[in-house]
Design a binder for these strands. Structure first.
Lengths: 340, 340
DNA sequence: TTGAAAGCGCTAACAC
DNA sequence: GTGTTAGCGCTTTCAA
């Protein structure tokens, strides 16, 4: 037992300055201190000043744990996302966090690592903080996660996908349509022998939906995915490079490859560059996400840009609002680039 | 007033299931429920089962706000970082979050956008949640921020820099040394006319320290930075491209350029590639960070790799521990690459 | 305009 | 093993 102070010594009491101490110092009641600090209710100028100077003198920092419990209304908003290192979620997180801060809320987050059962547990543990709202990636969740969300009584935003029915607020776009659009684009450029390089579709459901839409449109056009290579680990530039190499070794006569995201596609582009494969003449490459980097590699990548920052912002705003449940389709944009 | 249910209707009571409800349902006392849920204290098998089934039946989710207040010990750990989109902090965040989760803690974070006064406010607002510990980037802080941290009585980890004295735990490396190492490397390869492309040094103090060390070592070797270009906005591949262009327009006879980070350096490399500037024969490029991408661009970038994931992990572990205050220097690694 | 007092939902003694 | 009870630090009536 004991508390560590700034020099690392163990002392026996924490600096537990409470609203009561402030009230004593300012010679007012506790509720007056509370009123001053929250800027609510009428307080005389005299009292206000005394309280404020007591706060400064004591170095008082209000305890929001207690405040939240008493008012049964937290300013916490939880975010449950698959990854932080992936730029897509970084963007969502950055914008959501900024928006929430602006609204006087505080972001708490947890990372699922694309694992639905981890998601289930994390949702539960986030809900235990009684947040004002929760933002989760995707609209597919484990049954118990769904039940907990529904039963929580708080606002829920499901983001990055509009392909099925959400619980409360949905902010995203159709991944199926994104896949379809990519396929249509390749077909319109006369591509015939099309390959696919993707990461684990059973974990990343949205990538699976894109692939589904892609295949469907190819089929409608009388075509199909000739060969595909699934990346075993996390997608990365390096895996894209290796996977395209493998795919082409097996099926050298492809004239286009669709990648499940830009990281893989950029890796693919690097493979082509270092092996003298003419892009897009000999082989067309199509990515997905619209990362900043795709415009800047020596040959701008053809891809689909998703409005991730906007999604973060809108989701954050709605989840703190009283607006009715709704679906916000923010769409996506085909970037024609120079690799198709 | 009112609470919104899953269909968006406003109902007058939240599903406020408390430990008391569970106790009634299971026909035990509240403390027994608490014991079962926290896995502490002796409870009979019968009671445990009854409690667990009541929990399931009622869909009870414990209220950690109340639990924390009652036990005056939170499992929250706060992170205050300059940015989430920057891969460096993404890595730190990812690893710290994973480590904390493993230790039964929960990460809360706030983004300062490299603004010291924002940092000050965010530290205060994080401290209001009475976290078990706090992890902040850097060791330079506003005086009031320092005072609040010192007075908080919680564990504090300052990360990514060991160039001055910290408060409690410090996990990082010397940015000054990193700058020195880069300069030494360029000098050892016979570079004479050296330029610099960097982002706003007054905001990113660590980049400033690197530049300081860099200049110092050049001076020791009888050299100096011939010309420099400061990026006005956030660093990015695009800004690196533009800035190098400007720098070379002004001072075409440089034989090496030191960039304040890899994003800028990669942009510089792309500029050289698209303008037929031979790297490193005509112009050497040196980055900083060791992002994954630097190994994979057509010409591997010379840079310094910093162990960011390790920093996140160690900081998270120590901040939850009882270990004495300490400085952990994790060092950095010179990546020779192919651009110097 | 102000203070007293009753909770918020839980944990942690303390009795039994 | 188990229940009772007194807080944790605040907000929020309610009187004054």
């Amino acid at each position: 037992m004991g508390y560590r102070n700034s020099v690392g010594e163990v002392v026996d009491r924490p600096p537990a300055i409470t609203i009561y101490d402030v009230a004593r110092e300012a010679r007012v009641g506790e509720s007056t201190v509370s009123r001053v600090l929250r800027g609510q209710g009428a307080v005389s100028e005299k009292a206000r000043e005394r309280v404020l100077s007591a706060v400064r003198k004591l170095g008082y920092v209000p305890n929001r744990i207690a405040g939240t419990l008493a008012s049964s209304g937290s300013r916490l908003v939880a975010l449950v996302i698959p990854s932080v290192t992936n730029n897509v979620f970084g963007d969502v997180l950055a914008e959501a966090s900024a928006t929430l801060t602006g609204l006087g809320h505080q972001a708490v987050f947890a990372v699922t690592d694309y694992d639905q059962s981890a998601e289930e547990n994390l949702i539960e543990s986030m809900l235990a903080w009684r947040p004002a709202g929760i933002i989760v990636a995707g609209i597919e969740h484990a049954p118990r996660a769904l039940a907990m969300l529904r039963g929580s009584g708080i606002r829920i935003a499901e983001i990055l996908d509009t392909d099925s029915t959400g619980i409360d607020i949905v902010v995203g776009y159709s991944n199926t349509d994104a896949g379809r659009t990519s396929a249509r684009f390749l077909l319109s450029r006369g591509k015939q022998r099309i390959g696919y390089v993707g990461h684990d579709l059973s974990r990343d459901l949205r990538a699976g939906k894109r692939y589904g839409g892609f295949c469907q449109t190819l089929a409608d056009g009388g075509s199909r995915v000739v060969d595909s290579e699934i990346v075993p680990e996390l997608s990365s530039i390096e895996m894209g490079r290796n996977s395209l190499a493998k795919l082409l070794e097996r099926t050298p006569d492809l004239d286009a490859v669709y990648f499940s995201n830009d990281d893989l596609a950029i890796g693919g582009l690097f493979h082509c560059m270092s092996h003298g494969i003419a892009v897009p003449e000999r082989l067309a490459l199509m990515g997905y996400n619209g990362l900043d980097a795709v415009r800047l590699v020596p040959r701008p990548l053809s891809t689909i840009r998703t409005p991730r920052r906007l999604i973060g912002q809108v989701a954050a705003r709605l989840v703190c609002s009283e607006e009715p449940s709704q679906v916000v389709d923010v769409g996506f944009e085909l970037i024609e680039g120079a690799t198709v």
